[in-house]
């Protein structure tokens, strides 16, 4: 028997289009794009600058409204929701990692994570601290929990940002160029953490990146160019879940 959740996409974008500007300055960045993402899978969205990959990520994650098309996330039409409902959906189900670490200068690594739990879930100070310390331990930052961003390396800061995205244990994790500001060694650590989120926690992970070295670390690669998806590669050997899926199909 195959688990239905492995056949049903956790996140599905259907006929998505998006333009910016009006009149003569109107620029279309997405042309009728459809994509399916599955839980337990890390997908790399690649393409040259301006190909529309960040826009697609923003639409799939509920941050940017598409001009047309639908996004189904866990069976819910994301863009049929009200702003408040979508905000709650993101709070409950989405984690984000951006190119810039965007950490608060005044707060320690532990406080950056605690803040998400206390403000997002209303967790008590004690519980937030415990979970933040567990996450930092998992990220190999246990000894640096008390340090502020200025006292951390680029890789460490990005790991804190990953911790901030994953501490809620989200169903979806969206990462936009998470390794572009890092050397390859630190970049590899970051990708492995995201892989672990997908494989160990069953999260649906979508990574937007330029770096071709990431390809061998992901389950699936989707290429974009000029606002269209044009090629999808799947790495069977690295992903038992996907392998099972393909067999089932």
């Amino acid at each position: 028997m195959i688990d239905d959740s492995l056949l049903t996409p956790a996140l599905q974008g259907v006929h998505l289009s998006r333009s910016f500007g009006e009149g003569e300055t109107k620029t279309t960045v997405l042309y009728d794009v459809s994509i399916e993402l599955f839980s337990g899978q890390i997908t790399l969205l690649m393409g040259p600058s301006g190909s529309g990959k960040s826009t697609l990520l923003a639409i799939l994650s509920g941050l940017l409204h598409p001009d047309s098309g639908t996004v189904m996330a866990l069976g819910h039409d994301l863009w049929a929701m009200s702003d408040l409902e979508r905000e709650r959906f993101r709070l409950r189900h989405c984690g984000f990692i951006f190119q810039g670490y965007n950490l608060f200068n005044a707060l320690t690594a532990r406080q950056q994570l605690e803040m998400v739990l206390r403000w997002g879930e209303g967790a008590s100070a004690g519980e937030a601290r415990r979970r933040a310390e567990e996450m930092l331990d998992l990220l190999g930052l246990a000894k640096k929990a008390h340090l502020r961003p200025t006292e951390l390396s680029g890789g460490e800061k990005q790991r804190v940002a990953i911790g901030r995205a994953l501490i809620k244990e989200p169903n979806f994790c969206f990462a936009d160029e998470p390794t572009s500001a890092l050397d390859w060694k630190a970049g590899q650590q970051v990708i492995e953490l995201l892989r672990s989120a997908a494989h160990d926690r069953g999260a649906t992970v979508l990574v937007v990146a330029h770096d071709a070295r990431i390809i061998e670390h992901v389950d699936r690669v989707v290429h974009m160019e000029d606002g269209r998806l044009w090629q999808q590669e799947e790495h069977e050997a690295r992903e038992p879940v996907l392998h099972t899926l393909k067999q089932a199909r």
């Binding site: 409950r92 984690g95 803040m115 997002g120 901030r164 995205a165």
Partner: peptide, 18 residues
């Protein structure tokens, strides 16, 4: 000066009132 940091929190679904 902290708009980007607050924007991350908003992306994560932290309510604006917080």
């Amino acid at each position: 000066a902290s708009l980007r940091e607050y924007a991350v929190l908003r992306a994560l679904g932290i309510p604006r009132w917080r």
